[in-house]
Design a binder for these strands. Structure first.
Length: 606
RNA sequence: GCACCCGUAGCUCAGCUGGAUAGAGCGUCGCCCUCCGGAGGCGAAGGUCACAGGUUCGACUCCUGUCGGGUGCGCCA
């Protein structure tokens, strides 16, 4: 069945040329390790002392560029004063091109000052690198990412936006690092509501003719079916009948059901395309896909004595969760009428992803209300041995979308806000801004700018927040040109493009030695080198807001640099001009790459 | 009743694996226009990190309790 098309397991990821970039933290860690083992040989430290060596960026330049607390951690096992130990660590540190000098500060921190020559070399490499110095992951994994998950016969609404956008950004980031990513769109395509939907579709077809069905407004269709189900007993009876027949595999009902799915997927795809979300119909893995697995799972859980019968239903008792009497909570996996529940589906789903798709890691981008439910399902999954302990099942939760007034985000009449309406409004607001501020652009380009701006603003507003609780949706905030917003980043990017236009230099192929003299130049160079760490952090934690924060800081560093270090002004030496153009072009490249990983386009002019 | 999530500046949010003086933007108040796109930059004011204990050389971060908010909890998904 087409809609069940399992994601094909991709070809084994090609052996890539591993880009060997000296990462500053890793290199320092290595140096410290050597110093540590020297001290062990000298008997200063016990042999079995092997801490995780921590190297951090400092917050204040007076503390150097990087620092370690290693001496503080080692003080106790060494039975030594931390500062004295810090000195011993420094004395045994091999010399390196990376470090210009070290300092011992405070209670026993070791501060490292980076060699500016080393810095400029690294940044120069970045200019040549296709990947902005981001190496592919050393251990390539198959990662299943569950996101978006709208319902059949309903239109996508604001409740789906966060899962869709954040999930898509994480997917792009993982793929950039070389992982084999399987997008899983777990659409709600099963359940008792299909009886009334089929019945309603049937009536609609009889009225309009089978081929003339126009379900432009899925919401209205769903509401109508529900309303008839609640008020018309004859209709309700027919609906209940269809549920049974559908579950029994009745051909006619299956056909009608597929029709509903098909119509919905077309709606959804239009929204995904409009939002530049990388999902396609091939990524649909709906709930119904797991139906065939459910009987076997229940039997297996019974056989394993994890499940038992209780009042006709099959129940798994979990000591980890208590019910209101303080007894182990029973999770029903099969109703007394023989029907299955979504917990059973989610058990099957996790099992399938690991056993059939070969996942090394599974990430779920689902709202926080599902948390407890997922934990229960996964507890059972672990106990039954369907997913080994070394394969993480991760729930990346988020809260509800609230309006500026702190109340649930609704239409004026109190209805759910459809995603298309939200995008339309974004488009309108962005157009207004562009009409006002970009009059020098041709109308056609203005329209393009407005649509990129709209899409970017909506997506970025979501991506830049890390709340697991409810969050506030505010048009004015997300469309502002100040602060951590898409417009600010797009502006910074387009401004760099304009420097090159003005200088009449092609960025492609431009190359010049980098000179780091001014504080602002050094700060910008250091910020550029943090890109690789940021990409990895987003992938490891599934948190795209870390990329947003980074890009915002980068743009800020660039703006400060641009203010302090003239590029095309008279009085700037040729060498400085070229060096600064080089820094500008790398900055643009990183912003472009970073936004691309977030699923956001850039603008050459705005 | 039980469970999960959360509580950081007036507002919206950061704060990475426990590190040095808790950071941005908006708003408020200043400064910088013979300016490379002012859609910008620089600065000031604004904090009992909900509260109370504990662990630690060191806690916004970890543990316990209290208060406050959100959400969920046997036959819907």
């Amino acid at each position: 069945m087409f809609y069940r098309s399992f994601a094909k397991i991709c070809d084994p990821v090609k052996k890539f040329e591993s880009l060997v970039f000296q990462r500053m933290k890793a290199q320092l860690q290595h140096l410290l390790e050597q110093s540590l083992s020297a001290l062990k040989q000298q008997g200063v430290l016990p042999e079995d002392f092997s801490p995780r060596i921590q190297v951090d960026r400092t917050k204040d330049i007076s503390h150097g560029d990087l620092a370690t607390n290693l001496a503080l951690m080692a003080a106790k096992p060494a039975k030594q004063n931390p500062r004295a130990l810090a000195q011993a660590l420094v004395d045994n540190l091999p010399s390196s091109a990376l470090v210009e000098k070290t300092e011992i500060a405070g209670p026993g921190f070791i501060n490292f000052y980076l060699n500016p020559n080393w810095l400029s070399e690294q940044v120069s490499q970045m200019a040549k690198s296709e990947r902005c110095n981001v190496a592919k992951a050393q251990q390539l994994q198959t990662v299943v990412v569950d996101y978006s998950a709208p319902n059949v016969a309903k239109e996508m609404h604001v409740g789906h936006i966060r899962s869709t956008i954040i999930g898509d950004a994480v997917v792009r980031t993982l793929e950039f690092l070389g992982h084999n990513v399987i997008r899983a769109n777990h659409i709600g395509d099963w359940g008792t509501q299909f009886g009334m939907l089929i019945a309603n579709l049937e009536d609609l077809e009889q009225g309009q003719g089978e081929d003339n069905i126009d379900l432009a407004d899925l919401e209205a269709f769903y509401r109508e079916a529900k309303q008839r189900y609640d008020s018309d007993e004859v209709f309700a009876e027919r609906a209940r009948n269809y549920v049974v027949k559908l579950q029994g595999g009745d051909e006619y009902c299956q056909k009608m059901w597929k029709k509903l799915i098909d119509i919905t997927l077309d709606h959804n795809q239009a929204v995904y395309d409009r939002m530049n979300v990388s999902l396609s119909k091939q990524n649909v893995m709906g709930e119904s896909q797991y139906n065939a697995m459910l009987p076997g799972i229940v039997e297996d859980l019974l056989a394993q004595k994890l499940a038992e019968e209780d009042q006709g239903a099959i129940v798994v008792r979990l000591d980890e969760y208590k019910n209101k009497d303080g007894d182990p909570m029973g999770v029903i996996i099969r109703k007394k009428d023989g029907g299955y529940l979504y917990t059973t589906t989610d058990i099957a789903c996790a099992k399938y992803r690991v056993q059939e798709l070969g996942a090394d890691r599974v990430m779920y981008f689902i709202d926080s209300r599902q948390h407890q439910h997922l934990m229960q399902a996964w507890t059972i999954v672990r106990k039954a041995g369907y997913v080994p302990e070394n394969v993480p099942l991760e729930h990346h939760a988020f809260g509800m979308m609230l309006g500026k007034d702190g109340r649930p985000f609704k239409t004026r009449s109190g209805g759910t806000v459809k995603l298309v309406d939200l995008l339309d409004e974004a488009q309108e607001r962005a157009s207004q801004i562009v009409e006002e501020k970009s009059q020098y652009l041709e109308p056609q380009e203005r329209q393009h700018v407005a649509s990129v701006l709209a899409q970017a603003s909506v997506k970025y507003a979501d991506l830049s927040k890390n709340r697991t609780t409810d969050y506030i949706f505010d048009w004015d905030n997300m469309l502002a040109f100040n602060g951590n917003t898409a417009p600010y980043l797009l502006y910074a990017y387009s401004r760099i493009q304009s420097i090159f236009r003005k200088a009449e230099i092609d960025q492609q192929g431009f190359s010049a030695p980098i000179i780091l003299e001014h504080d602002a130049e050094v700060a910008l160079a250091q910020k550029l080198l943090q890109f690789s760490d940021t990409v990895n952090a987003v992938a490891n934690k599934g948190m795209p807001h870390m990329m947003c924060n980074y890009l915002y800081e980068l743009a800020g560093s660039f703006m400060s640099f641009y203010e302090a270090c003239p590029i095309l002004k008279d009085g700037t030496s040729e060498a400085d001009k070229n060096s600064r153009l080089q820094l500008a072009t790398i900055t643009a490249k990183v912003i472009h790459q970073g936004l691309d990983l977030l699923g956001i386009e850039t603008l050459e002019r705005m």
